[in-house]
Nucleic acid binder design. Structure first.
Lengths: 149, 149
DNA sequence: CGGGACCGTCAGGCTGGTTGACCATCCCCT
DNA sequence: AGGGGATGGTCAACCAGCCTGACGGTCCCG
């Protein structure tokens, strides 16, 4: 178990993340999408569902390098979840679009993610769940401020 | 920014972890320990401060493989934070011991981690901080239960 | 005194990114 | 009209952090 951060709080955050991530992947596997890894969510989460989105724009939204995003898109394209089509408006660009399979998977992902959050909410109770989210956002924000620009 | 997990909650957890981790590393660098990475905490956190601890035991405590732990120990040894000494009680084993430098760094780590938690507590207020920790422990526990055995 | 079991180590591999360099295209400015 | 810089996608190389597998030395129990 990996990259602890000394502060117990840090460890808890990481463990929580991993718990949710592997749970989500497991759910999607059960439901017929075995080649989806947690990272792929960065695509599903940021892509325009009908029009598709350029690679660079996807990378920007997901806050990663375009090269990193390319690995994800390559992988998804290889498994038939998305395809690249030339952008008619810009000869340089390609638009990443969801295939029908990709759309189904994206929908399933959202459902699964929703289910996980709901399950967590039930585990904690409304009040504590809301406090948790709120507190996390505040903690994350204090540092994200730095690398945002 | 990497490995999002679809659930917004997952993203928040990861971001929080990273915020704390890089903050801690930065603090230690400022204070004269520039070669410490977040992962090294797994050693400092689990080693017996005077007697030292065997590699395998360290790995077990940190819940990672002995090979993974070895990389950390190798690195720390290379920078003079720990050294391996033969275990007089067992010809197979070596005991990983903190050097004087390692002891100072471990102490500084604990201080820095403490400072970060305190700072977070001030950011959130006592009530929300406590709720946060409690909630996180609960969330993490529901899954850790699985791979604990 | 033989056979597991356990210790540390080497080797190789995987995931999930990163930086750097490139070329084609675009578009603004003179 | 026509550079020249910015932008879009790609290839290549690299890195952090881990993991699995295999192995030789040592221990300990029957």
């Amino acid at each position: 178990m990996i990259t602890m951060v000394g502060t117990d709080l840090g460890r808890l955050l990481l463990e929580g993340h991993r718990a949710l991530a592997s749970e989500l992947v497991a759910l999607l596997e059960e439901r017929g999408y075995p080649d989806i890894r947690a990272g792929h969510a960065a695509v599903f989460l940021h892509i325009d569902r009908r029009a598709g989105t350029r690679l660079t724009e996807l990378a920007r939204r997901a806050r990663m390098t375009k090269q990193g995003m390319m690995l994800l898109v390559d992988d998804l394209e290889g498994h038939g979840y998305v395809r690249r089509v030339a952008d008619p408006e810009d000869g340089r660009a390609k638009v990443v679009k969801l295939t029908a399979h990709g759309r189904r998977c994206a929908a399933e992902s959202r459902r699964a993610a929703q289910a996980l959050e709901t399950q967590t909410r039930r585990l904690l109770g409304d009040r504590r769940y809301d406090t948790l989210r709120e507190a996390l956002e505040e903690v994350a924000a204090t540092r994200v401020a730095f690398d945002d620009e």
